[in-house]
Design a protein around this nucleic acid. Structure first.
Lengths: 224, 224
DNA sequence: TCACAGGGAGAAGGGGGTTCTCTTTCGCGG
DNA sequence: CCGCGAAAGAGAACCCCCTTCTCCCTGTGA
């Protein structure tokens, strides 16, 4: 970070003394951010290679840091997973925005959202390129939903808001059946889309086109 | 078990010798079944009181048996949970049959199934009477679905078959949109119904009437 | 009565998350 | 340059929990 920059969230310092403090904090912050990034990167790599779960020890070893440092930055493994999960959701939201930007029709945008999100959530089978979240993240998401609903809602916010906007747009365009509780629908749609793997395993269906089936089911429920 | 009874799955013995063997096996079986029941009961009680998770130690202590015996009957904690889960699903199927038996119209039966199953799956909030599965079972179900799809499908079979029958009936009555993959639909419906808690947490909705919302969404997708 | 399978008690092993202690390193003021 | 104190590396220690193992008692059939 260059000397001319000032941390975005710091109030502008008025005196030399405050400036010095701010600068010190700034450098500390940047160091801390790098550290955190080290841990997050290590964990991501482990999740992508190991395929299954990872241990805190492994993260520490891979990051070249020490156990002590880890627990200075994260209150526990739980927080590390939460951080990874939040970033994963944010990344998903960004990618969904890209896909949606290519469409104009509100219903088409909804369609694209559902199919693409379903594709992204599908934990990649061995062999095909890794796109979705690691199984560890999926499991964590499930646990989060049942044991910490509050934080789960917060973590999911980017995707929920995006879907909410799409629903509002579709409604404004008159494409939705009137009287729908759009917030609730958003929840149902996300949940069904995300955990659709269940439907695949339980009915032994080919896992490919679940998104379209879901969409088909969904659209005939919400279109006028 | 009385002397006159014969294990249902044993072939009828022809000689005294075979009869003796069968009787010995029979008594051993009955003892084993009692034992297993002890463990299952203890685990159920723990889940209903402790609310969170239970340890094998606690099950052993509560059942009055020994650790050694436990591992003689169950390959591990996993199998105990699986057994509990299977029985829970069977119980759910029985109760659903009862509720459905009160209706005649195929669509009404589907409706009843969805709403009731959703209600049963809702892990009871503190305060209200305990009806649904313990959180430990819900978590186990989720893990099972992602890590052992085969066994998960088997465990869910009673409910899946029931729903499949209802869908077939509705289709035969001409109440379903033609061309639906009913097996897949069953999976989607079950998944959405069961894990609907997500929709509630994510949209901070009152958890009461999720079943009806889901049904509303669903029926306008599958009715002609 | 004796031999032995069954099983109770609980120690031991092993993995994993979390905490603690010792020690080194490093930046900085004197 | 020196010494001090904060940061942090190494890893031992602790605790919880699942699983295994060993020892020994008891009840039962020959």
């Amino acid at each position: 970070m260059s000397v001319n920059e000032v941390p975005a969230d710091a109030t502008m310092p008025a005196t030399r003394r405050e400036l010095a403090v701010a600068r010190a904090l700034d450098s500390a912050r940047s160091r801390a951010e790098n550290r955190v990034e080290l841990f997050l990167d290590a964990a991501r790599e482990l999740m992508n290679t190991n395929a299954t779960d990872f241990t805190v020890q492994e993260v520490v070893e891979r990051s070249g840091q020490s156990l002590r440092t880890f627990y200075q930055y994260f209150a526990g493994k739980y927080e590390l997973l939460l951080a990874l999960f939040e970033e994963s959701v944010e990344g998903a939201a960004v990618q969904l925005e890209l896909v949606i930007a290519e469409r104009d029709d509100p219903i088409e945008r909804l369609h694209a959202f559902c199919v693409e999100y379903n594709r992204m959530c599908r934990t990649s089978a061995p062999g095909e390129p890794v796109i979705g979240p690691a199984p560890a993240l999926v499991e964590f998401a499930q646990q989060l939903l049942t044991s910490h609903p509050k934080e789960a809602a917060h973590a999911f916010a980017p995707v929920v808001e995006l879907l909410g906007r799409l629903l509002d747009d579709a409604d404004a365009a008159g494409a939705l059946r009137p009287g729908l509780d759009r917030r609730r629908i958003a929840g149902v749609v996300l949940q069904a889309t995300m955990f659709n793997a269940f439907a695949a395993t339980i009915s032994a269906s080919p896992p490919g086109s679940g998104g379209e089936v879901l969409w088909d089911l969904l659209v005939h429920g919400i279109s006028t």
